[in-house]
Design a protein around this nucleic acid. Structure first.
Lengths: 223, 223
DNA sequence: CAATTTATTTATTGATCGTTGAATAAATAA
DNA sequence: TTATTTATTCAACGATCAATAAATAAATTG
């Protein structure tokens, strides 16, 4: 019998994974709402139906838990972005547009937000908070896994309009990033400002308008 | 002698004002760096060279101090924005452009950031944090004083291109707001991503590129 | 000057923080 | 079954939190 070790540990391994994820889900939701310093380990434990000690057992300390919350989804989102950019580049070799590249970059993110999984909504809000936090703290805000896909985005935009300077390409990404970030934050402020005309959770509309506005805006950088 | 009460209270009133501002400055800097829950009253007091009790004496509690920090500059910035929009509208009656309106709206903010006063840099970073925080907490995140000037901006943009729907005007503001917010945050992330090509504190370049990119982007909404 | 208001410090409260070590229960290994 | 590893809970540590009441110092008033 070759399948001896795998099914043997099944029960306890599942238990472990289930507890870990329950804690991560609770932490994700609470951290999205009130941020790193606004949430206590006790709250997270209680929300997860686990003792505080168990949280420490699985994630060492608060910073470890935070980083685990980010790491759980960062890779998935990042891979989806990279795959979408690759697919677009392969399908439109020679006739790429700024709108096309931008849509390819944005679409995966907004798909996750519209997937119905509340975890991604919380994760988005948490990322938005992280994006307005200066680098170099307790917590890993470097987003190192995101760097290569940003580089890929910039390189594709460079292919679309080679006359745009490298610095301007990064500034352009900066503006795109700001618009994404505020959208993911889902503060409900645009809902109030617009008197209900716009809704923070209308990600389909946000994606469409963002592609149009910022796709068109890219042309302004081509001298 | 008509000038009797005014100079009499001079000494103590100045003392009061000086202490208040010293505390506000310290709080502004610390809050900008680590946010509401990341900073303690003790830290703020120590940074201001005052006892914690004095902070409570002037601002009641932590939330009161936070709101006072925001309120100190919110009105100034807001008035400058409104004046700039009014001046532009008066000077370009009939021949307004999206770029012009946008520049008028953005220019005051970036002027404050470039003024050299570190207080405004901290205030900007604090506002950025606030902008990625959901409404309805301990603290006044409604930004009620900002609402009228946003309305004014939207109305001017409506004059530029009446065919753009009201909802799209607000979405456009949403993207502008996101780009501003990330710029004010000054996280240093664009510096790292661009390998030093861009600098978070280069507000003159940010303003210029933002006006061009988002000014051009507005045209995409005019069907 | 004396009386009073205002600014600031000292000392302390009860609550809550992140974290830990030891005890216990459950599952796996032998 | 017995021994051992793994998961979970219990109880507690010292530190630090926001806030307050009372005492003190300084300035203003009359």
């Amino acid at each position: 019998m070759s399948a001896k070790k795998q099914p043997a540990r099944r029960k306890q391994a599942d238990r472990r994974e289930e507890s870990r994820e329950r804690i991560l889900d609770a932490a994700e939701e609470l951290l999205a709402g009130r941020g790193y310093d606004g949430v206590t380990m006790r709250e997270i434990g209680k929300a997860a139906g686990a003792d505080t000690s168990l949280v420490h057992y699985y994630f060492d300390n608060k910073a470890g838990l935070f980083n685990a919350v980010i790491a759980r989804r960062a890779g998935v989102v990042n891979d989806a972005r990279e795959a979408a950019l690759d697919a677009y580049a392969a399908a439109h070799k020679g006739n790429m547009t700024a709108q096309g590249v931008l849509r390819a970059y944005l679409e995966p993110t907004f798909s996750f937000m519209m997937s119905g999984e509340p975890g991604y909504l919380n994760y988005g809000a948490l990322i938005a908070k992280l994006n307005s936090t200066a680098m170099g703290g307790d917590v890993d805000t470097t987003h190192t896994p995101f760097d290569p896909v940003v580089e890929r985005l910039v390189n594709l935009l460079n292919e679309v309009r080679p006359e745009v300077s490298r610095a301007d390409l990064y500034w352009y990404y900066h503006f795109v990033s700001g618009a994404i970030s505020l959208s993911l934050a889902q503060t409900g402020r645009i809902d109030v400002l617009s008197g209900g005309l716009c809704r923070s959770d209308d990600f389909a509309t946000i994606l469409d308008r963002m592609v149009r506005v910022l796709g068109q805006g890219f042309e302004a950088l081509a001298t």
